[in-house]
């Protein structure tokens, strides 16, 4: 990178030296202790049956606490530019969008299957009383995989 540049005036020398922000040793040790304690708690909690959703929530809360501790102290977000925290947080936000919106689909499939059964079988005469013939609606034919999926779920 050492690059002789004859036109290099106008930009202020090479700035002052970089001075690192050194985190005191006890902070690292306390962080480590916190992580070990939380690991013990989360393993211990898994032996107690609190109901599946409570167990899951507890595990996620503990994991998130651990993640925050790692990010804040080991990864220096606590003393770093706030912008880096924002950058990292954005990944969590968009991951949340990804999971949540996908679950709008996967957890709500087949909600209207009952109503769909009553849809007019005769497309050319929709207001005639439904006959026994099964509907041949093109939309259903186009999506066999997704439509059967809902039925398969326990």
């Amino acid at each position: 990178m050492a690059h002789a540049d004859p036109h290099d005036h106008g930009h202020h020398s090479h700035g002052p030296d970089h001075v690192p922000h050194v985190t005191p040793l006890p902070i690292y040790l306390k962080t480590f202790a916190t992580l070990v304690v939380l690991t013990v708690i989360t393993v211990g909690a898994s032996y107690i049956n609190l109901g599946t959703s409570v167990n899951l929530a507890l595990a996620l809360i503990i994991a998130t606490t651990k993640a925050c501790v790692v990010a804040a102290f080991f990864m220096h977000l606590a003393s770093d530019h706030k912008f880096h925290t924002a950058v990292f947080a954005s990944s969590i936000v968009f991951l949340g969008i990804f999971v949540a919106f996908t679950m709008f689909d996967t957890s709500a499939r087949g909600q209207f299957d009952a109503q769909k059964k009553n849809r007019p079988a005769q497309m050319t005469d929709p207001f005639a009383k439904a006959t026994a013939a099964p509907s041949a609606a093109p939309a259903a034919a186009a999506a066999p995989a997704g439509a059967t999926k809902a039925g398969a779920k326990p």
Binding site: T42, S46, N55, A59, L60, I62, A63, A67
Partner: peptide
């Protein structure tokens, strides 16, 4: 995250 999700719950 992997550890509790896969091994514990």
């Amino acid at each position: 995250y992997l550890f509790p999700l896969l091994y514990l719950v």
